[in-house]
Design a binder for these strands. Structure first.
Length: 360
DNA sequence: AATCCGGGGAC
DNA sequence: GTCCCAGGATT
């Protein structure tokens, strides 16, 4: 049996029962693929079910506000995926009357649909003979052929694409693509792969060399830089209700279109007086009497390329400042309605700022 | 080609 | 602590 048929046979016996595997609806396939970008199945599964329930088809998704889509995406990370998905839904409704583009080339034009996702949707939903190339495929092929090329380099991707194009089963590209990814996710894992029970053991060059753990070869990772975040949790009573200031992150960059607090960002650590004398504190407080009721411990938040060392300054005011632009005053009871990054969510929960009714 | 963009789970 | 996940966009 050749490699392709071996993978497919293994898949039929070992595949997980996942909701997007029991549909041919390109919308559902697309939703699952975008959610699973750089995301493990177990982490994305709940979000997939949530999205399908709230937005059963592309028309529901397109009709929603971007903020609602972000709110439903909250906690999943890489929020540009949510914004792009929403944008793509608009395009599909407006340009294609709600019908998904049926080819790799057309799918590739949509926001948030790159080479991997276009290949996955076109092959799984439409049977186009297009190999997927994700982290799993790279690892499996890298080990099978003991590839010396760095799999995440341009040359490595070209090499992998060539190999995958040879291996893919032209009679059933959908099953082949899912099979090789599932094989990488469950058996040919990054650590402690199941070589002893592997049906491709005799074909695997890395195994015969006893060098399975040396593959895949990858580029050196960029160092994670540290940044110091000082958040101002400015509270005051307005119309009998406790309010705080939120910041709508409209500029490009991290957490765009989500909400956090007024922020002072610094490449180095700052003393407390420096935090209060610099913007945005100096502008918000503007000679008003205030009380620092608490300064939090450090919250360490790790991103893919940043380590955010964060402190929250809880500042009590007697009334709302004259000018709070560009911030907005929000009743504490309403915080749960806004899409917020995990760092802010962690603080709110720890400080019990939330009230009954606050949910993820 | 390099960098930015999240969060979590396995070890 | 380290690694990496059904990657994509930007520069």
């Amino acid at each position: 049996m050749n490699i392709s048929q071996t993978l497919i046979s293994w898949y039929q016996l070992n595949k997980r029962d996942l909701p997007w595997r029991s549909t041919h609806d390109p919308y559902c396939i697309c939703l699952s693929e975008v959610i699973l970008q750089q995301t493990r199945v177990n982490q994305g599964l709940e979000y997939y079910n949530r999205f399908v329930e709230r937005f059963p088809d592309v028309f529901f998704l397109a009709a929603a506000t971007e903020e609602e889509v972000l709110k439903l995406w909250q906690g999943l990370g890489y929020y540009s995926r949510a914004r792009n998905l929403h944008h793509a839904a608009h395009m599909i409704v407006q340009k294609f009357n709600g019908v998904f583009p049926p080819t790799y080339a057309e799918l590739l034009k949509l926001n948030g649909i790159g080479e991997y996702t276009a290949a996955a949707i076109s092959s799984i939903a439409y049977g186009e003979v297009k190999p997927v190339l994700d982290g799993n495929v790279a690892r499996v092929l890298s080990r099978l052929y003991a590839l010396q090329e760095q799999v995440d380099s341009a040359a490595g991707k070209k090499l992998l694409n060539g190999i995958a194009s040879q291996l893919i089963d032209p009679a059933d590209p959908a099953t082949f693509n899912q099979a090789i990814m599932e094989f990488g996710a469950l058996l040919c894992t990054p650590r402690n792969p199941g070589c002893e029970t592997c049906p491709l053991q005799s074909s695997c060059l890395a195994f015969s060399l006893k060098r399975v753990n040396d593959y895949p070869v990858k580029l050196a990772r960029t160092v994670v830089k540290e940044r110091y975040f000082y958040y101002l949790v400015v509270t005051f009573v307005k119309q009998g209700e406790l309010h705080l200031l939120l910041n709508h992150r409209n500029s490009i960059g991290i957490w765009r279109k989500m909400y956090d607090f007024p922020l002072l960002e610094s490449p180095g650590e700052l003393e407390y007086p420096a935090v209060l004398s610099a913007q945005p504190a100096s502008i918000i407080l503007n000679d008003m009497p205030f009380e620092i009721s608490a300064i939090s411990d450090e919250y360490i938040h790790i991103l893919s390329h940043r380590k955010l060392i964060t402190r929250f300054f809880k500042i009590k005011l007697q009334r709302q400042p004259e000018s709070i632009q560009p911030y907005i005053a929000v009743p504490v009871s309403q915080i749960g309605k806004y899409p917020i990054p995990r760092l802010i969510d962690r603080y709110i929960r720890a400080e019990k700022l939330l009230v009954p009714g606050y949910t993820l």
